[in-house]
Design a binder for these strands. Sequence first.
DNA 1: AATGTAATCGAAACCGATTTAGGGCCGGAG
DNA 2: CTCCGGCCCTAAATCGGTTTCGATTACATT
Lengths: 346, 346
Amino acid sequence: MGVAVTIKDLAAKCGLSVSAISKALNNYPDISEETRAHVRKAAAELGYFPNAQARALKTNRTYNIGVVYEDGNRDGLLHNFFASILDGFKREIETSGFDITFINRNIGRGQLSLLNHCKYRNMDGALIACVDFYNAEVVELSKSDVPCVTIDHLFAAACPCAMSDNRTGMSELIRYVASMGHRRIGFVHGEHTAVTDTRMSSFFETMNALHLPVVPELLLQGVYHSPPSNYTAIKQLMALPEPPTCVLLTDDFAALGALEALSEMGLMPGRDISIAGYDGIMVGQLIRPRLTTYQQDTQRVGCEAARLLVRRIEHPNETLRPPVIVSGRLLAGETVVDRTEKKVLS
Amino acid sequence: MGVAVTIKDLAAKCGLSVSAISKALNNYPDISEETRAHVRKAAAELGYFPNAQARALKTNRTYNIGVVYEDGNRDGLLHNFFASILDGFKREIETSGFDITFINRNIGRGQLSLLNHCKYRNMDGALIACVDFYNAEVVELSKSDVPCVTIDHLFAAACPCAMSDNRTGMSELIRYVASMGHRRIGFVHGEHTAVTDTRMSSFFETMNALHLPVVPELLLQGVYHSPPSNYTAIKQLMALPEPPTCVLLTDDFAALGALEALSEMGLMPGRDISIAGYDGIMVGQLIRPRLTTYQQDTQRVGCEAARLLVRRIEHPNETLRPPVIVSGRLLAGETVVDRTEKKVLS
DNA sequence: AATGTAATCGAAACCGATTTAGGGCCGGAG
DNA sequence: CTCCGGCCCTAAATCGGTTTCGATTACATT
């Protein structure tokens, strides 16, 4: 190694003690301004910067954030939706001087729980996203003394949360679909999670408010981010004696699976049958017909999560802030047909 | 904090000195087997694990890898291709006990070069991917004493590299297209990079070998991962007096832009005009018509990069290994028409 | 002149590990 | 009986910083 310059070298160059240097650089009040300036100048000349480990050892601050990310399935980083949230989180938290490190369960050849991994590296905080929130290790981490922030899941524990406005989103989507003349609306929801619960309750509420019938056969459980699952679901729905005129899928990526199924059946989405996704990923707007969906502001969700976490780290005793709810917007693509016009025409 | 258990606590519990504990856990030979066993048991009981900072301070090993990732554009994590490589890298390097941390240019409110950021955190090594390899800071890092591995770019510096077999890939793709009866082949290549150079030279070579004409007007420069850029390029190509019958785009994501342009022009890819992408991202196989492309084995590229890096870290003086070249496979989708049949029919 | 006070800086302890040098203890050789 | 060499362990230095506590100096106050 090109032998890093340490605080001792700097002290020698300045003719000062090590402690004086430290204080000068950390803006202690008992160092004169001219000394401080001199030290700063010398530090710049020597290209000095403190050793992160040494500093952390003493201060218990690493300026490093652990990111707990799916490691079960083969998604994780490949998950468009969460990749975008992570990206937003990363950009924001970096401006506050934090780095991010992925947290997993192994260290050396040994194993470590998520919480212990965080403690091992002395993480200043952790982002919990894209995981099974009911997993024991995840719950343990959320309840621990390491400051956490979650995405789209509200823990009972004192854990701030940034979430997308799934209630309004679902509602707007349904109202749009209804405004296009659809009454028999199918809904493939995801596995049981907080997000699913919110969307489902919003589904029922909105359908009721619009006096639309909720038909049990049109309500299916699918799997988030899984084209095959939604491929199957839509085939099942279309095989019904009286199929829906419009189907809402779990998410955009999954909706691609539905589109695949439809094209196999010789049906053209946006003409013979309507479908809508959820998320608003970029490819959904690149394909033809453009996907009708509800776009979540993922960058913003990540950014808000970062702010909440920094706030929590810097003010640990502050009362817990309510979840930040980020609104999105409807993307009226071309996969939902306007049946009102048809009625007029026929 | 729940006051972490330190080596002192463990020493007290065992009635041994701190150094004995350290040696026992680090498999020093001068500790009796029974003592070692006893220490291990006690450590497990107390839930002890060493403090990463303290250890790193003394050993200069952090078991942390810096990941240098695009921070200029708004891609980065959103880049399907590199996200998958990073994912493969992450999985492999985690099995060797390393964590990964993103490297950027800021620390606190100050600024730090990429190299200095690595040194600040005492990274054991670095992955250089998805960046401008001609950037001064990137070059500096690659030449430094921190062990690096690159993806798809061979530095003059002693830096191992994992790369996709762009030469063979391009060649196979062209041969396939040619076998489908295409002679007027357009090629939108990316910005000047090592990857672009390889693909272009392979393009010329293969076209020559197949006695196909390389028409200057059919050779355009586009931008990687940019649908709009390729949207423009394909419109330009189709406006020619004698347009190509098949166009190769920079990558799959960009190819979606081309598909968009074609659909606007009322042309149907896979019937009126043929196009091919490159990369083999998942959505390309979910849309209809399925994208014809060359699939790179990104997981494998990431995995090989991890192995190279670990090797380099653990055996710094070993002579540099040659680049690992990972082969991919042709994905014959539906966006390239078979003109030979047409000829027969007409 | 004696005392008090503010402004600066230094000495040393400390964070939690690793590692070098050395010190008892025991058995066997001389 | 002494000496020597393993074996097993401890003491202490060290990594590179931060922070507490004191020390020194200069200057104003009484």
